[in-house]
C-alpha cells in the first residue's frame, strides 16, 4: 500500500461520504418516515425529531388500514409472500433451464446456437408492454391468466436471458482441457457437467441467480397486468396505499422498508460474492 497524504485521505473520505449520502439518504428518510404518522410526515418544515410509532408496521402486518374515515382491508403480507414465492420459483426455474442451456451455448457449438442465444437476449430489448398485450389474450384463452404458473412463465422473460448470458461467460472461461481430462479419466458427459463445470462456474451461477432474483423481485408491469389481487407481489400491492381518502405515506414507507428488506439483506450478504463473481467473468485468465 502506498503512503497516502492526509489531504488525499480527507478528500477521498469526503467524496465517499457524499456518494453514500446521495444514494442512502432516500432510504434513510423512508426508514424515518415508516415510524411516523401521516401528520408528522407532512409537517412543514420537515423535521427529524418526532415520536416514533409502530402503527404503520402493525397495520401492515394485521392487514387493516385505519383511514381517517373508514377502515380498509389490505393484503400486504400476502403480497410480500407472493413476491417471495414468485421470485424464488422464477429464479429456480430460470436456473434449472438457463444453466444447462448456457453450458450448451458455451461448450457445444451447434448450428444456429449463436442465433438462438441472441434471440433469447433480444427479449430484453423489447418493451414489456409489447409482449404483454398479446400475452394477456393468449393467457386468458389457455387459462393461464391470473395463475402463479402463468406469472412464473412470464417472469422467465426477465430471468432467463440474464442467467443464460452471465453463466455462459463463466462456462466459456473453463479451459476445455480440464473437462477433457475428466472425460479421459473415465467419467461421462453428465458427470463432467455436474462435477467439473458446475462447481467451477459456481460463483457466476450464484451471482446470476442473485441478480435475477433482484430483477424478478422488482418487476412491476407483468404482475400488474397479468395478476389479480391475491397473486400480486408487493410492487403492485403498494398501489393500495393510494386510497380515495388520501395517500398513506407512513404505511407506504413501512411497506417499502419491508419489501426491500429481503433484497437488501441478500445483497449485503452476497456483496463480495457478487462483485467477485461478476468481475471474474469479465477478465479472462
Amino acid at each position: 500500500m502506498q503512503s497516502v497524504s492526509t489531504l488525499e485521505r480527507v478528500l477521498r473520505g469526503t467524496a465517499l461520504s457524499l456518494v453514500i449520502f446521495f444514494f442512502m439518504f432516500p432510504i434513510f428518510w423512508i426508514f424515518l418516515m415508516s415510524f411516523q404518522t401521516n401528520e408528522t410526515i407532512l409537517r412543514v418544515p420537515p423535521s427529524m425529531v418526532f415520536e416514533p410509532t409502530l402503527t404503520n408496521y402493525r397495520s401492515l402486518i394485521s392487514g387493516t388500514l385505519e383511514g381517517s374515515t373508514a377502515t380498509l382491508e389490505i393484503r400486504f403480507m400476502g403480497n410480500l409472500y407472493n413476491s417471495l414465492f414468485l421470485s424464488v420459483t422464477s429464479v429456480t426455474v430460470g436456473l434449472l433451464l438457463g444453466v444447462p442451456a448456457a453450458y450448451a451455448f458455451a461448450k457445444l457449438k451447434f448450428r444456429g446456437s449463436e442465433d438462438i442465444a441472441f434471440t433469447l437476449l433480444s427479449f430484453r430489448f423489447a418493451p414489456p408492454l409489447l409482449v404483454l398485450l398479446p400475452l394477456t389474450i393468449y393467457f386468458q384463452k389457455i387459462g393461464l391468466a391470473d395463475t402463479y404458473v402463468g406469472l412464473i412463465w412470464v417472469y422467465q422473460l426477465i430471468v432467463l436471458p440474464l442467467i443464460l448470458w452471465i453463466v455462459r461467460g463463466y462456462f466459456e472461461d473453463i479451459p476445455s482441457d480440464i473437462e477433457y481430462a475428466h472425460r479421459i479419466a473415465g467419467h461421462g458427459f453428465w458427470s463432467t457437467f455436474t462435477k467439473i463445470a458446475l462447481p467451477l462456474a459456481g460463483p457466476g451461477i450464484a451471482a446470476a441467480g442473485l441478480l435475477a432474483f433482484i430483477f424478478a423481485w422488482n418487476n412491476f408491469i407483468f404482475a400488474l397486468v397479468l395478476a389479480s389481487a391475491d397473486k400480486q407481489p408487493v410492487t403492485v400491492g403498494a398501489l393500495a396505499f393510494i386510497t380515495a381518502s388520501g395517500i398513506n405515506y407512513g404505511q407506504i414507507a413501512a411497506g417499502i422498508m419491508l419489501s426491500i428488506a429481503p433484497t437488501f439483506a441478500l445483497a449485503l450478504y452476497a456483496q463480495r460474492y457478487l462483485v467477485e463473481g461478476l468481475s471474474l467473468g469479465a477478465v479472462k485468465g
Binding site: 479451459p175 482441457d177 480440464i178 481430462a181 475428466h182 479421459i184 479419466a185
Partner: peptide
C-alpha cells in the same frame, strides 16, 4: 473418450 481406456497428461496440466 471415457470408454477408450486412455490416460493423458496435458501440457498445461489441466488439473481440476
Amino acid at each position: 473418450p471415457e470408454d477408450r481406456g486412455i490416460g493423458m497428461a496435458f501440457q498445461n496440466f489441466a488439473l481440476f
